[in-house]
Each structure stands twice: as structure tokens, then as C-alpha cells.
Write a protein that binds this DNA or RNA. Structure first.
Lengths: 126, 126
DNA sequence: ACATACTATATGTAAAATGTCAATAGTGGG
DNA sequence: CCCACTATTGACATTTTACATATAGTATGT
């Protein structure tokens, strides 16, 4: 399929949703990547593959937003990491939240502009 | 600066805003790239460089969402393209709008979840 | 004529983000 | 032992975005 056709409309997510959701979950309580993978569904983020989550977690750790250690209690499977949010991570979460608020405003504006425009058309103001 | 530090929080826009805004503007009336560049500010999209807009327009044309021709009337500068939205483009715009509505819902959900969480913390529920 | 500022579009390339696939590995059940 | 489920990681391709720059016409001042 050519380059021109490649971009599809597909569940347009706000950039930053993933990070914000992860940080929020970890702000509630420490968790493992595998658990977070499940919990993210709460936020309606469409299927995110596991490797993406794990990578996001490692990146956030490199930035100091979260910290991790291997879990001691052994469970049904190989050892797993527990991630905790850091103080910095909490602050960053607050920033993401502010950004999302602005995003929402912009989306609102566009949607209203669209409605107004469609409305006008219906009323015959070609 | 290392890879880990490279990702900044930067005016988190919903993916698809740009396309939707362009299509909406063109749905109102045909326009030139240079004009659209100006008009996009209405939607609070932070500085988008011209090359990004022109590329977006060409891509949308390749997908059949818009059509262009060289403007006949000559103006202050080199010849310029007029872009019109196509029927397909109008339908695509409606889809983008639906997507943005869902995006807004998801953002809403996350923001409320954050508020609830912060509220709980304040009330002493560790 | 020459410089420069603004209008206008196009391209090349690098960097960043995302997606896909598969590798590795422990545990438990039949 | 084979399979299914839990759990994390790495390699690679694709997609998206940003940035710098090329090209070019028009207008204005000197």
C-alpha cells in the first residue's frame, strides 16, 4: 500500500494519555507492568501491546518519574518488577493533567466550531 | 542530552487535531496553504511550521480528501494553490470529529479519575 | 540595479514515537 | 513432556514530526 494511503484514522488518542494513565495508576499504588497492562483498559486506551508498556515504564524510570525493584514474593511466573511513582513523577503527573485540560479545551473548541458550521449549512446559509 | 531525557511535555495535542482543523477550514471555504497556516491559530494549535502544513495538504490530496489547482488571479508573490475539500474529505472530517469526541471522553474520564484520587488523598485516606 | 522583506510552495533529512514480532523464562496442569 | 499462562525484554520496521533549506515571485526603498 502506497505511502499516501498509509495513514488511517484510528482511535485518535491524545498524546500523553498513556503516560498520564500510567502515572495515575502508579500514584494510586505500586504495580507490575503486567498488572498495569490490564488496568489501562479502565481508561479506554485501545489495545496497547505489552512491549510498549514495558518500554514506557523503563523510559519513565530513566527520567526519574518512577522507580522499580524486583519483587521478592514469588508468584505464578518469572520474577517481576514493582514500579513505584517518585515525587518527581507526581509532579510530572500534575503537569500532564494540566496539558490534558488544555487539550480538552482545544478539542471542545474544534467540536463546537464544527457544530456551528454544520448548523449554519442546514439553515440554508450555503 | 540522552535519549531518556529527550521526551518533553510539550503542548500535548490530540493526534488528528491538525487534519480535522484543516478539513474544517476547507469545509468552510477553499483556501491556500499560506492562509490556512494563519487560520490554524484559531484552534490553538501551537506553532506549526509551514512545511508541515504543505506536506499535510499534499498528503490529504493524495488520499483524495482535498483537491487543488493553481490560482489564476495573481497576487503578491509566486503562484499559489487553492485547496478545496472533496466529498470524501467531508466524510472523513465527520469521522475525525467522532474520533475527537471519543478522545474528549477519555480525557474527561482520566481527569475525573485524577480529581477523585487527589480528593481522597486530601481527606486523609492515606 | 541592488538589497531586503514578505509572500508562497516544496524537499531532504534527521530525530522521535509507535507498532510488530519474536526471544527468553518461570510456573502449573494434564 | 507439551501446553497455556504469567512476565519481561530486545530488535527492527514503520510512522510521525521537526527543522533546515531551496526555489521563486512581488513590492519597496536607495
Amino acid at each position: 500500500m502506497g505511502k499516501a494511503q498509509s495513514r488511517q484514522i484510528r482511535g485518535c488518542r491524545a498524546t500523553g494519555m498513556r503516560e498520564a494513565a500510567l502515572l495515575l495508576l502508579l500514584h494510586r499504588e505500586p504495580a507490575h507492568g503486567y498488572t498495569l497492562l490490564e488496568q489501562l483498559k479502565e481508561f479506554g486506551l485501545r489495545e496497547i501491546s505489552s512491549s510498549v508498556i514495558y518500554r514506557a515504564l523503563r523510559d519513565m524510570e530513566a527520567r526519574g518519574w518512577v522507580a522499580s525493584m524486583w519483587d521478592e514474593e514469588q508468584t505464578q511466573g518469572p520474577p517481576r518488577r514493582v514500579y513505584c511513582i517518585t515525587n518527581l513523577g507526581g509532579q510530572v503527573l500534575a503537569l500532564w493533567v494540566q496539558d490534558l485540560e488544555e487539550s480538552r479545551k482545544r478539542i471542545d473548541y474544534l467540536l463546537r466550531a464544527y457544530d456551528r458550521h454544520v448548523e449554519k449549512r442546514k439553515n440554508g446559509h450555503h
